[in-house]
């Protein structure tokens, strides 16, 4: 009876968004009389940071301070239409919609400022700190608040913008089966080390090394947060979680957290993350989405590492102690392919 160590690798491409009848997101942006902006979205921030990222995108596009933008989400009765927060699509689809809405609102804001300054709107720039001034002449300036107030109370102008970003439905070519359901992919590579116990069948992930390509990381701390938490979910799916342990037999399905097991804070593996930034051509400021693909490479990498450790190819997830022990018995014990260390 012994512990066996193994190493496994996996690389994945993961599509951003989906292809069910087209994939649109809408955004509405408007200014309030105090010169601050509200972005209305129907997409939901589940904790992944969608409000933070769309706020950054709106502020960057409008040319105003981050503090001057409020993102209002998640009321699909009153907000503009959105397909939703799923398919790793939030940053890409909503970000692009927000850019378009903010560009339109910015144009009206500059026209309002131009009327007050008696200049051409095309000659105006923003400094990102709440001021609009003539290009090359910072003293010819007006605050965004003053421009918004002039628009509201003197000019009778609405500083607002509408944005939609749509990836149209890609139909399948009936002759060739060819289609283009996706415009952009995120990528990941993962190397894991495991330790397998051939007496208990338990497999522990002991180390994770990853590289993720997410376009431009619009908010690096949020990206890291997604990757770290998502890889943990991947580890959990690989070796712990299932609702139907004997699928398709529903027997022994867990009904509570006593039976539905997850790796706890004592079961973590060190995870070394590298983020590769290659701005996406059709992404908002180059961003794509780390959403789901942060979890995906862990599963095949763990399965490969188990094969490396004990020579057992497990083809049904999760890799439970029972499957390992049954597999080892069937093949006459652990057959390490290459001893690690």
């Amino acid at each position: 009876m012994a512990l066996h160590r193994g190493r496994g690798f996996a690389a994945i491409n993961y599509p951003i968004g989906m292809n069910l009848g087209g994939d649109p997101s809408q955004a509405l942006v408007h200014s309030n009389p105090d010169g601050k902006f509200t972005v209305a979205l129907s997409a939901i921030d589940l904790g992944q940071g969608m409000k933070s990222v769309t706020r950054q995108v709106a502020a960057e596009t409008l040319g105003v301070p981050l503090e001057d933008v409020y993102v209002d989400t998640a009321d699909s009765d009153t907000g503009p239409h959105d397909m939703g927060s799923f398919a790793s699509r939030g940053t890409h689809r909503m970000g692009n919609a927000v850019i378009r809405a903010a560009e339109e609102a910015r144009q009206v804001m500059l026209e309002a400022a131009a009327e007050e300054l008696e200049v051409d709107a095309a000659d105006l720039v923003t400094d990102g700190q709440g001021n609009i001034h003539v290009r090359g002449a910072p003293s010819r300036s007006i605050t965004t608040m003053a421009a918004a107030q002039a628009a509201q109370f003197r000019q009778g102008r609405t500083i607002a913008g509408r944005g939609i970003f749509l990836i149209p439905l890609s139909e399948v070519d009936p002759d060739t089966g060819e289609m283009s359901p996706v415009t952009t992919f995120a990528h990941a590579a993962m190397l894991v080390e495991v330790e397998g116990d051939d007496e208990t069948g338990e497999v522990a992930v002991t180390d994770m090394q990853s590289a993720y390509e997410v376009g431009r990381a619009l908010n690096p701390r949020l990206v890291e947060q997604q990757l770290r938490g998502g890889a943990w979910m991947g580890m959990s799916h690989a070796a712990w979680e299932t609702t139907e342990p004997y699928y398709p037999d529903r027997a022994h399905g867990p009904v509570d957290f006593n039976a539905y097991t997850l790796p706890g804070p004592g079961d973590l593996a060190p995870h070394h993350i590298s983020v590769l930034e290659r701005p996406a051509e059709d992404g908002p400021y180059g961003g794509k989405g780390p959403g789901e693909m942060c979890a995906n490479p862990v599963l095949p990498a763990v399965v490969n590492a188990v094969y490396d450790a004990v020579g057992l190819r497990i083809d049904e997830l999760p890799v439970t102690p029972e499957k390992v022990l049954r597999g080892l018995r069937a093949q006459g014990g652990a057959k390490p392919r290459r001893a690690l260390g």
């Binding site: 947060q225 770290r228 890889a231 943990w232 957290f257 997850l262 804070p265 973590l268 995870h271």
Partner: peptide, 20 residues
């Protein structure tokens, strides 16, 4: 000891490392 102290608190999002 930190791990022990939070071992009764499930987290679904963070992977625990940032909390520790």
């Amino acid at each position: 000891e930190v791990v022990e102290a939070i071992s009764g608190n499930l987290c679904r999002c963070t992977g625990y490392e940032p909390i520790i």
